[in-house]
């Protein structure tokens, strides 16, 4: 129930991000689209790991260690997404550095002014 809503939300964010990457002319807008699509992907992966009515895989007073397997959600998607978010930040930083360097060469942020690879 809950996770189907968040799955739809993640897919919608992914599609909006791809649309922004395809249609916008401004390079920084494209990177913003990438970051939106990134968030959408992470929401999809986390929703696939959700189990109905279960709670976070951390043992404390609320979850006893004896029957923890019946009470917790899947920890593997959380672990994968955790590292993916940090990598996403690093990739965004590299892309923005490239954009700053490209701007220094051509003095333009519009994708129409970069035609070296156009045929």
């Amino acid at each position: 129930m809950i996770s189907s809503y968040t799955l739809i939300l993640g897919i919608a964010l992914l599609i909006i991000g791809f649309y922004a990457m395809l249609t916008r002319k401004n390079l920084i807008k494209m990177v913003i689209g990438f970051s939106i699509a990134d968030t959408g992907t992470h929401i999809i992966i986390v929703s696939l790991g959700y189990l109905r009515g279960k709670t976070a895989p951390i043992i404390d007073q609320a979850v006893s260690a004896v029957n923890a397997v019946q009470k917790v959600v899947d920890p593997i998607p959380s672990a994968l997404v955790l590292t993916a978010i940090v990598i996403g930040l690093a990739v965004t930083a590299v892309m923005l550095s490239f954009i700053v360097e490209m701007y220094r060469k051509n003095k333009s942020l519009s994708i129409d002014d970069y035609q070296e690879l156009k045929w």
């Binding site: 709670t55 976070a56 951390i58 404390d60 007073q61 609320a62």
Partner: peptide, 10 residues
């Protein structure tokens, strides 16, 4: 949400 799910660590 922390109250509703009864988890202090949140």
């Amino acid at each position: 949400i922390a109250y509703h799910m009864n988890r202090i660590i949140y």
